[in-house]
């Protein structure tokens, strides 16, 4: 994938807003954001209810995903254009999710909802109506999804990229600072993981930096291009954005997103944890 095939500008979306071949989809951390105004013709996916199983901690199944997209009027042939708040965190998560279930033509709107708003582009509260479809998903592409055992096995062996803020990585905060800090799990990071905050991928307006700047960023922190890479954060959305940068914009071959991320890893019994600003040794620290 390349920037041209995976990313579109806000202006491109505005120019294609009535194009019947595309479906614009908003996905936000704040699931009420869409209801306060959205891009014309955009549909909403709620990451908490539409994209998560409501009993076990996991994604919806292939058949549930098929039913969801069929109900919302998305077909296999549609170009799906995703955007959302928080600099596209959850839109990138949805992008990765669509790829996981094999949707071919999916794009991210550069800068997301923030860029659209800062440009003073129009939002509407009018809800689009779409005919239902018969969507067919593939089995999950597990070449882009990491599980906890993959994360543990990657310590000291693969590139582990922890994209949380420096204070979360070091263990000084347990969650992003717009959320209450009430968590039960341990603080810190997976030993040997490199801290490349997701925000370093983006300009202040939420758009991605240039390919040259992004390449320089990952070269500077010492990512080894010959190794496989796992990106992680707290619950796997911010790391979806970094997965998007490494896999889709920069074309790295084998990049996985660990959706369990720190809320899972930091709750595991007996796994090594490192505290502080340095990656640490593979065995981690103890008190």
């Amino acid at each position: 994938m390349t920037r041209e095939s995976s990313l579109v500008t806000a202006q491109w979306v505005e120019d294609n807003i009535d194009n019947a071949d595309i479906v614009i989809v908003e996905v936000d951390e704040d699931t009420t954001a869409y209801d306060k105004g959205h891009i014309k013709n955009a549909i909403k996916l709620d990451w908490t209810t539409d994209l998560q199983d409501q009993v076990r901690r996991d994604f919806v199944s292939k058949s549930q995903f098929e039913a969801l997209l069929s109900d919302r009027g998305v077909s296999n042939d549609h170009t799906v254009v995703l955007y959302g708040g928080n600099n596209n965190w959850f839109a990138a998560y949805a992008y990765w999710y669509f790829k996981l279930y094999g949707h071919q033509d999916v794009k991210l709107m550069d800068g997301g909802r923030k860029k659209w708003e800062l440009d003073s582009r129009e939002l509407t509260d009018e809800l689009p109506t779409r005919d239902t479809t018969s969507y067919t998903a593939t089995e999950q592409d597990l070449s882009i999804r990491a599980f906890r055992d993959d994360a543990v096995a990657a310590i000291g062996v693969q590139n582990l990229i922890d994209v949380r803020s420096p204070d979360e990585y070091a263990g000084r905060l347990l969650a992003p600072a717009h959320l209450p800090q009430e968590q039960s799990q341990r603080a810190g990071h997976v030993p040997t993981s490199l801290n490349v905050p997701w925000s370093k991928n983006c300009n202040d307006d939420g758009t991605f930096k240039s390919d040259d700047d992004l390449k320089a960023l990952y070269a500077e922190v010492g990512i080894d291009d010959s190794l496989d890479t796992i990106a992680l954060c707290r619950i796997g959305e911010r790391s979806s954005l970094t997965w998007f940068v490494l896999k889709e914009l920069l074309g790295h071959a084998n990049v996985k997103n660990y959706d369990g991320s720190w809320t899972e890893y930091g709750s595991l019994v007996g796994v090594p944890i490192a505290l502080g600003d340095e990656p640490g040794s593979p065995e981690g620290q103890t008190s």
């Binding site: 704040d30 954001a33 306060k36 708040g85 928080n86 600099n87 923030k114 708003e117 800062l118 803020s165 420096p166 204070d167 000084r172 905060l173 969650a175 992003p176 600072a177 717009h178 959320l179 209450p180 800090q181 905050p197 925000s199 202040d204």
Partner: peptide, 29 residues
């Protein structure tokens, strides 16, 4: 508006959109 929280080194830590009344909140350290 969008309000970003930058840490002591200037690194991004969080960002929130303001409410209809212009309000925002962070849980910092």
């Amino acid at each position: 508006a969008y309000v970003r929280l930058l840490d002591r080194t200037g690194e991004f830590t969080a960002e929130v959109p303001t409410s209809a009344t212009g309000h925002f909140r962070f849980f910092a350290g």
